[in-house]
Design a protein around this nucleic acid. Structure first.
Lengths: 219, 219
DNA sequence: GACGGGAACTTTTGATCAAAAGTTTCCACA
DNA sequence: TGTGGAAACTTTTGATCAAAAGTTCCCGTC
């Protein structure tokens, strides 16, 4: 078997598949803050046995995407003003940096891909599809961040987004996606112009707006 | 049973105990970079069965303290210049901030405790006890950071330290602890004077020195 | 000697189940 | 009515084992 095809054929372990599935569900708002999750129920729903479910849950707990309560039950964490403040600080220190580092490595083809994600995001806002909005928004940010070649920073960013996902979803549910104007055009323009500082600052603006939305929807 | 004593008596799950044990071993240099770990071997060594070991490993993998290779084996990650650069950036953005946030909440009693950790660190340097040095150093930083009441930032800091632990240990093994001068007196002084900015900047200095040591020992 | 293939071996993985932990229900009794 | 506590029930947890995945070693062939 040629080495280049191995990664496609090599079977992913079940616990990894489940981790990815749960991660997406948290990221794109399938769970609401505070929602309890039971191993048994997840095993039934996802068609797996308890062991791989537990491993996936431990990973997500370590990433603060889930929390285990004192009675051993697992739940989606609630958003609080204090947590939001911490996440605000983290996003503003990590993500503009990721964007700045990514900028020099983004190819014209990849900018096209970013614009397609942005078009999808626009479309989602227009038709009011919250989940599609969240997916397109995630895709835009993380295809950019991926190019930073900074896996450790990227991992921190993913953890942050996992913690925001559920709260963002309820915010969109309450106020719709209407209030969310699109900040991403600025970013792609700056990428085309090779203006790396502006890539970073435009992401910063996007974060400020996004977190304001979450903060507002918390009240 | 009175509620206030529950947390002391409530039995910790095995996977949690193992997680803590492995975490300490990584943090204080019991493993060297690149060292492979097998579930079977850990199960035997730690006197447990595979299931809780696997859960602990998944958590530590999520925290980048361990990595699973493409062949499903688990190993302690190697330190690389690129990783060190990322960790440098993260430490410098997260830890001075934790120190600054903690400073106003640290009581005189707690400053005394910090100084005791620092004495122990001095003592460890004098007798050349690497592991004691690492424990005292960790205790100093994290008793301070804990008071920041910023659990999410704290978790990021812990993940960073877990990634540095093994490399720091080999550095100390090669050069001894002699080169590590004690920067912590500055921090405790600033705490006593209520000079919160200087608490933050002195931690910054400490980080720069510590990371220089690791960088130097990489070559 | 170098290479390919397969047998023997080791390790990880996922399903299962009994035991432990935690929750709920309900009834006796004040 | 309200309280305590046992019983029934649910969920998590850890041990175990068979199957899958991965590695090593050896032998026959070139």
């Amino acid at each position: 078997m040629p080495r280049k095809f191995q990664s496609q054929t090599k079977k992913q372990p079940e616990h990894d598949v489940i981790y990815q599935a749960l991660k997406d569900m948290i990221l794109f708002g399938d769970f609401i803050p505070g929602q309890p999750l039971t191993i048994m129920n997840l095993a039934e729903t996802l068609g797996a046995s308890a062991t791989p479910i537990r491993e996936a849950i431990r990973r997500l707990t370590a990433e603060r995407a889930l929390e285990t309560q004192e009675n051993r039950r697992v739940a989606v964490p609630h958003m609080t003003p204090a947590l939001l403040e911490e996440l605000d600080f983290l996003r503003l220190t990590i993500e503009p940096e990721l964007a700045r580092r990514a900028a020099p490595h983004v190819t014209p083809d990849e900018i096209d891909a970013l614009e397609r994600h942005d078009d999808e995001l626009e479309h989602a806002i227009n038709i009011g599809d919250v989940k599609l909005y969240m997916k397109a928004n995630y895709a835009f940010h993380f295809t950019l961040y991926q190019r930073a070649e900074a896996p450790t920073l990227l991992k921190v960013a993913e953890s942050i987004w996992l913690q925001i996902g559920p709260a963002l979803r309820v915010g969109c549910g309450r106020f719709g996606t209407a209030k969310l104007t699109d900040q991403h055009v600025e970013t792609t323009k700056a990428l085309r112009n090779g203006d790396f500082d502006r890539v970073s600052t435009s992401i910063r603006e996007d974060i400020i707006q996004g977190m304001d939305f979450v903060r507002h929807s918390l009240k």
